[in-house]
Amino acid sequence: MSVELVGLAVLMFAVTYPTRAVGLLAPGMERMPKLALAYLQLVGPAILTAIAAVSVMVRTDDTGATSFYIGVEWLAVAACLAIVAWRRNLFLGLIVAVAIVVVARAVGLSALPPS
């Protein structure tokens, strides 16, 4: 059984870990100015919505080119957002989102995402 790519995995770890660790391990992070701390408090909402929006609105083809995508996934994510905002229940929101996509694909309104 090949283990050649284990070395690559270790190298990928070596460049990934610092991005995860620098904020948590660097000394003095707790002495940041208030403005910096206030900024960091807003990173969560900003980056999570960016991830969600990019995930459902942007598609990348085999050549790496990006394009704007409109699909039933928008509706599913919007439904989840509405349910969480209304009921504060993420799990219910996820179930509804999945149900919308499954039904849409079953009746041919939406295709499977490219793998």
Binding site: G44, P45, L48, T49, I51, A52, A53, S55, V56, E73, A76, V77, C80, L81, I83, V84, A85, R88, L90, G93, L94, A97, V98, A99, I100, V101, V102, R105, P113
Partner: peptide, 16 residues
């Protein structure tokens, strides 16, 4: 429909 869970979860957690 597993692929929609990730973006839906991210937006739901952002709401919080």
């Amino acid at each position: 429909g597993i692929d929609v869970i990730f973006p839906a979860a991210m937006i739901g957690l952002a709401v919080g």
